[in-house]
Structure formats: structure tokens, C-alpha cells
Amino acid sequence: IFIPVAVLTLQPNWTQIFTGETVTLRCDIQGGGDTDWEYNFYKNDQSVYYDTKSEYRISPVYTSHTGSYTCMGVKGNKESTTNRPKAVLTTSPHPICRGETVTIRCVIEGRDSDWVYDFMKNDQSVDSDTNTEYRICPVYTSHTGSYTCMGVKGNKESITSDAVQLTVPQPHVTTRTRLQKSLQIWTVRLTCLHATTSPNTRINGTTASRYTTRRESTRCHPVYTSDSGEYSCRRRHRSVHYDSEWSDPVKLKVFYLPRASVKIVSPQEPLYTGDRVTLQCYIPEYTDWTYVWYRDNQHLPSETSKTITIMLPNNAGQYQCQGKRTDQPQSSYMSPNHPISVTGKIP
């Protein structure tokens, strides 16, 4: 719909006007067709002059005439607009997470009174009120969208604000496991992820027990089978005292690592001086292991096979082994020490 535009000019167009002079305000309707208009002049949004003449003459002018002037043309059901103010839309807080409270504020530049504020999401009206704020509590992912606003006062409308994108992500938990080689234990890091995270937040995680931290991650160190369960998290703002919704749960299942053991393949005990002894690293689960061997707690880098052969008595000692693989589980437990020594006497 085309709305004719009213243009207001000041005659004379001086930068300074002094008391006692004569001032003429002229209202020209652009795109209005014929000239059968009635003109309404406003000072600070209050009507001060209404006539069929397009000019409003003030003589003499006084300091009391100081103000912001606009005009509008009226013809039947048709109206013009003039110098339409623009709406400005702002949101808080940032960042935003599901379950929090979001306040969207609409301000009309230069004229912030007696307006009805129309808030729109994706060009569809979601709220219309004299309150400058549209409050969403709690906010969900379904509230994600492009928001604008405009002011309406009688037959006048402001220019629609620029769009503000509201994105409401859902927090979710990720897990990462790591083997502490020196301790032979596994650690699990649980991370609570949002689109963004403010430094003024705490992350809560829950299973049978609860972890609270000011960091995005919490760590179970070491991890045990008792740590199995469903974990979820939420974000808590300390400054404004509200929480996001809990994330969807993530299942954490902690299994025992496969157990390795050292076995003597040949010869049968007792062992004698000069025997060639074949040892095997036995791990009952999986078959794609790479094997690591130790003698007296010293790594044997040349031995990577499932079986190794040693000579007695030169290679006697306490033997251990462990399996390594690329997939989970990435290692087995270290085997217990197995002593290999000369145990028999030649008659």
C-alpha cells in the first residue's frame, strides 16, 4: 500500500530564530494526487493547528514555541506520513541458552512515549503492547528467529527496526577419554557446550551425584565402573540468578579394561640353564593388539609380537606385557609380574 509522504519545511529556513519574528511551517504532500487535503500540524506529538491550508503561521514567535514539529495530511480515509521515526530493537542477555529469560526492547528514536509497540518474529506479530519490552520466560529453541519491532500511535507508524537474530541453542554434553600412562588409569572429560559461554557462568552436571564448576568441563579422574550413568548439564548465571534448562542426557558406560597376563608356552617348568623359553602375552578379548613387553620394569622396544623367546639365565627377570590398539579400548591393563628364572637343577 502506497502512503503519501508529508514533507515539512520551515520558512525562513534560518539556523537561528529570534523572539518577535514570524515563522511559517509549510506541509507539502508528495505523491498525494489532488490538493483536497486537510493539514494537521503537531508540536512534540501534540496537535497545535488543523486547517485546509498547507501553512501554519506563527507570528510573533516566542521561546514557548520551541519544540519538534511534524505534520500530516488527511483526506477521507487517506493519511500521509512525515519524518517517520525509526524503531530500534535490542535484546538481553547475551549469550542466550534454553530455559533462560530474554527481554527484547523496542525504542522509538526521538519519541519514546504514548506508542503501542508491535513485536514481530519472522514478520509475524507475536506481541503488541504499550510496554516497550517483550519478555520471553523461559526461552526455548522454538523462539529462534528474526525479530523486529515498530511503534504505532493512532494513525502513525514508525519505521520498522532492523532485524535482530535470536538464536537459542540447546546445551549438550560431550565426552573425551584419555589414558594416564604413568598411572594406568582412564580419565573422562565431560564438556557442557553452548553456542557461546559467558565468563559469568557455572556449569552443573548431574548423574547419581552432581558436579558444579565455573569451567565448561568437569573431569572424573580416575574413572570407575561406578561412574557409569546418564550425564546432563546446565548453565547458571551468578549475576542474574537464573539457570538454563538441563541438556539432553549423555550415557557414559565405563567397562573394565581387558586384562593381560604372561604365560610360558614352552618348555614346561621347571626351567634349566640354557633353555630357550617362549613367553606369550595372553589377552582374551579382541585380536588386533600390538604388544608391549617389559622386563624388570624396563621397556623392551624390540619386542612387539604376541610371543617372545628368551635365553636362560641371561634374560631371567620379572616379565610384564600390555596390549595396544587404535580403537576403543585402546589398551589393556598391564599384566602382573611373572618371574622367569632357572628353577630346575641338572642331576
Rank of each mutant, 00 (worst) to 15 (best):
R135H: 00
S182F: 14
I1T: 14
S266E: 15
Y319L: 00
R325I: 07
W14Q: 11
T174Y: 06
C137H: 14
T24D: 10
S92G: 09
C281F: 03
V240E: 13
R111G: 02
Y294R: 01
S146W: 10
S341A: 14
Q30M: 11
Y256I: 09
R215N: 03
Q184C: 14
G73P: 11
C137I: 08
N83F: 06
G67R: 01
N13H: 07
Q322N: 06
C149S: 15
T307Y: 09
N131W: 01
I264R: 04
I340W: 12
E285C: 09
S239Y: 13
D36V: 02
Y256G: 10
T144P: 15
I104M: 04
S146I: 08
S47D: 10
N314T: 15
S341T: 15
K156P: 02
R210G: 11
L257E: 10
Q16Y: 06
T225A: 13
D45M: 13
D248C: 08
T287H: 15
W289T: 12
I17W: 02
I340Y: 05
T290W: 04
T175C: 05
V126Q: 07
Q268E: 12
T212S: 15
Q46S: 12
P347E: 13
K86H: 12
W289E: 02
W37Q: 08
L10K: 15
Y333I: 06
K306M: 05
H65T: 11
E55M: 03
